[in-house]
Simulated assay, not measured.
Amino acid sequence: MSQQTTFKIPKTNSLVAVSIYLALGLCALVYGILNIEVAFWAKLSLPFAGAIFFTFIEYVAHRYLYHSGEDYTNAENWQYTMHGVHHMHPNDKGLLAMPIFLALVLAAAFFGLFHLVMQDHAFFFWPGFLMGYAGYLYVHYSIHAHKPPNNIFGYLWKHHLLHHHIYDDKAFGVTSPLWDMVFGSMPPKKALHRKEG
């Protein structure tokens, strides 16, 4: 199995990406608050719903696109370019986020889909979704760039690093283990609660 790719995989600065998506999400939310007439409950709750929905999309894409079918570590398969290269080089900070242009195209497509389904409510749901993506990028970057904190967030480090180093068929959630619990892809409890020595 060859690990040589025929083209250079683009790298992205995760913190620049986080800043762009966070700013775009906040601007869209402020625009919605100032210009779109929807119920107060929608203005308050839909950004949170959008962020939670992002964690679902994160899980589904990670498990069913990046880890399905083809061998994602084989450089000849598309999964390698999108995700396998990150597994092969987990500490390369430039491989933690997709290229910004591609992410913005996908973000625009999601806005179009959300607007088709929920009309003006998309101006509140989509910013939450986008800020959920920014949160995902920040958590993912932090996990690969820093030591785990000695608090509840250290659990996310352990959960994701188990996916990288022991169970590549489990622990697909990065920002939350929620969907791993729902869909039965949690690593064994003993692995999650093992003390690091």
Rank of each mutant, 00 (worst) to 15 (best):
Thr5Ser: 15
Thr5Gln: 09
Thr6Asn: 13
Thr6Tyr: 09
Phe7Asp: 14
Lys8Met: 08
Lys11Cys: 07
Lys11Ala: 14
Thr12Glu: 10
Asn13Gln: 12
Asn13Pro: 03
Val16Lys: 09
Val16Asn: 05
Ala17Gly: 10
Ala17Val: 02
Ala17Leu: 04
Val18Asn: 00
Ser19Gln: 04
Leu24Thr: 13
Leu29Met: 10
Val30Glu: 09
Val30Gln: 10
Tyr31Phe: 15
Gly32Trp: 05
Gly32Ala: 08
Ile33Asp: 08
Ile33Phe: 11
Ile36Glu: 12
Phe40Glu: 12
Lys43His: 09
Pro47Met: 01
Phe48Trp: 05
Ala49Gly: 01
Phe53Tyr: 03
Phe56Ile: 00
Ile57Lys: 01
Ile57Asp: 00
Tyr59Phe: 08
Tyr59Met: 01
Val60Leu: 14
Val60Tyr: 11
His62Gln: 09
Arg63Ile: 09
Arg63His: 12
Arg63Gly: 08
Arg63Pro: 05
Tyr64His: 13
His67Cys: 06
Ser68Ile: 06
Asp71Ala: 13
Tyr72Asn: 06
Tyr72Asp: 04
Tyr72Leu: 07
Thr73Gln: 15
Glu76Met: 00
Asn77Tyr: 08
Gln79His: 12
Tyr80Leu: 06
Thr81Asn: 09
Thr81Lys: 15
His83Met: 10
His83Glu: 12
Met88Phe: 06
Gly94Glu: 04
Leu95Pro: 02
Ile100Phe: 12
Leu104Phe: 12
Leu104Met: 14
Val105Ile: 15
Leu106Asp: 08
Ala107Val: 11
Ala109Met: 14
Phe110Arg: 01
Phe111Glu: 07
Gly112His: 07
His115Leu: 08
His121Phe: 11
Ala122Trp: 05
Phe123Gly: 09
Phe125Asp: 04
Phe125Tyr: 11
Trp126Ala: 14
Gly132Lys: 00
Tyr133Trp: 10
Gly135Gln: 03
Gly135Cys: 10
Leu137Lys: 00
Tyr138Ile: 05
Val139Leu: 07
Ser142Trp: 10
Ser142Gly: 07
His146Leu: 12
His146Glu: 10
Pro148Tyr: 05
Asn150Pro: 01
Asn150Cys: 05
Ile152Gly: 04
Ile152Phe: 13
Ile152His: 06
Tyr155Asp: 05
Trp157Ile: 03
Trp157Arg: 03
Lys158Trp: 01
His159Leu: 02
His159Arg: 06
His160Lys: 08
Leu162Val: 06
His165Ile: 08
Asp168Val: 04
Asp168Arg: 02
Asp169Val: 11
Lys170Arg: 15
Phe172Met: 07
Gly173Met: 00
Gly173Ala: 04
Pro177Gln: 04
Leu178Arg: 05
Met181Ser: 14
Val182Thr: 10
Phe183Asn: 07
Phe183Met: 11
Ser185Phe: 12
Met186Val: 10
Pro187Ala: 12
Lys190Gly: 00
Leu192Tyr: 00
Leu192His: 00
